[in-house]
Write a protein that binds this DNA or RNA. Structure first.
Lengths: 147, 147
DNA sequence: ACACCATGGTTTCAAATTAAAACCATGCAG
DNA sequence: CTGCATGGTTTTAATTTGAAACCATGGTGT
């Protein structure tokens, strides 16, 4: 898939983002970053992936402006890896992924973490796509159109 | 990443769905399926990927219940590959991906396809995550919590 | 009946990617 | 100066990928 980078211009609005993210690991790194993780070691321990792979994924995320390296918050000589504005833009995608997972990948009795409102601890609602007039729309109600 | 299938039980609510989807190609296949494509050849032509890879991805999507093979609608001896309920559940994820792409991967002047309401041809709104009380919430307003 | 072509795959094999492990570098604590 | 924690890079083998060739089935024209 990486080869596609060359003719990025021909890539559609779905393939381009996918190409930038890189792979599944990258998305899990981003998820961890949303959870407040910032250090190389934190990501590595949390995800259990090889250090060379983590280094490569971080490099890619930096190169695509999804994360950025900043001086470590604890004053140590190391770096923190934090989400950029662009990276934080992935929040809805991660929520969509999580909600799909809740719908289809857990037994009814199986417990799983919940995404909750900080204010009151209540679970958030489902993501909803609405038309201009406010109707909730599904795939059947939409189509893609040239500009 | 595939090795993780063995200890799926330890995978979190984000990693499990990712593992099931398989890879980027699979997501593009699903996107094409939402666009009405059903035949092996249609996917192959649209995505330009090798036939063996397409066959493998379709097998995986079938195995995970995201798509299913049905007798071809045109009466030919072949099969159609169509989304299951589970597969259709990926719609919000694809929308999130597309909207992120629109936000960060296109120049202001660059044109791209739009997701529009079938009823009236107007672009859909942005995906929004709301708390129980109806507030639109972002990453900062939420946290994950054990059940 | 026969060649011929379209569709939908599978097989083969070289090249790229991944992952585990070993190694290296830096900074700090005792 | 030794040892150890952190954050990587290098090395190497195994896996995955992808292009191309091949195969199978079912029409179509003649």
């Amino acid at each position: 898939m990486a080869k596609r980078v060359s003719h990025r211009d021909s890539m559609c609005g779905v393939a381009r983002p996918l190409d930038a993210i890189g792979d599944w690991w990258s998305l899990l790194i981003v998820r961890d970053a949303f959870d407040g993780k910032r250090r190389f070691g934190e990501f590595q321990k949390s995800l259990g992936l090889a250090k060379n792979i983590l280094a490569a994924r971080l490099r890619n995320l930096l190169a695509h402006g999804i994360m950025e390296a900043v001086p470590a918050a604890d004053g140590s000589a190391y770096q923190d890896y934090v989400l950029t504005e662009k990276g934080r833009g992935l929040f809805p995608l991660l929520v969509a992924l999580r909600q799909w997972g809740e719908d289809f990948f857990f037994e009814p009795d199986e417990s799983h973490v919940l995404l909750v409102d900080r204010k009151n601890g209540l679970p958030v609602r489902r993501l909803e796509l609405r038309a201009q007039d406010g109707r909730v729309v599904g795939a059947e109600d939409t189509m893609v159109r040239l500009p």
